[in-house]
Design a protein around this nucleic acid. Structure first.
Lengths: 115, 115
DNA sequence: CCGTATCCTTCCTGATACTG
DNA sequence: CAGTATCAGGAAGGATACGG
């Protein structure tokens, strides 16, 4: 199935880990330090509870974030970036910079809302 | 519908323009200079003709790329990055760098194939 | 060569309701 | 508070066939 000389492009490797726009925004939010589930939900505009849960689980499995559960009532869960997650920060920072500069342009492009 | 003090996050602005993984790979491929449709199709592993066409059209509309049609038989079309498209190069370069470094890790993470 | 037109499937996501 | 379970709608994307 695999072509003989197929060398996966490094950008593609990165995209496979970022996976979708929610995950990028989750990582971006976690740059500011540990966050509880509800905080992430509030900070990431438009994400559903289900999507947030699914993405957090998968990111945990892949080692991008760490999840710490406190045995308390009411429950408390904290999410943080792992060291691999933190290694992605430079990418996020370039995106942040670009988005900031872009807003200064005289003629904004039409932007759709999907990813 | 708009919350009073909603300030769209700059990262989200960037994500809205990148839109999906194919577009990121298209831009990445165009960094190397102008490309014909068939070249893009060959270089971007796994993309269908339909997806490539749709994404190129939308990227052209949004001003990320430029499309030049030569009135020849057989047809010839060349795609290049616009200046706004080129302004995204630093982001792509960080992704490239990250992907390259990541492959050197002793324990690769499980990578899924979707985006 | 560079597309467009259809069809079809799969995945994503939001909505909603319920629980430890 | 931080989830899980379920359902349904839509949109993205692939496969295929055909056209200028």
């Amino acid at each position: 199935m695999m072509k003989k000389n197929y060398i996966p492009c490094p950008v593609e490797t990165t995209l496979q880990l970022l996976e979708n726009r929610w995950r990028v925004l989750i990582i971006y939010d976690l740059i500011g330090g540990k966050k509880r589930f509800g905080e992430l939900k509030r900070n990431i505009s438009g994400i559903s509870q289900r999507s947030l849960t699914l993405n957090l689980r998968s990111m945990e499995e892949r080692g991008l974030i760490e999840r710490k559960v406190y045995a308390e009532i009411p429950p408390k869960v904290e999410y943080t970036l792992s060291s691999i997650g933190r290694s992605l920060i430079p990418i996020l920072k370039s995106m942040e910079r670009w988005g900031t500069d872009y807003k200064k342009l005289p003629m904004p492009l039409p932007a759709k809302h999907s990813l």
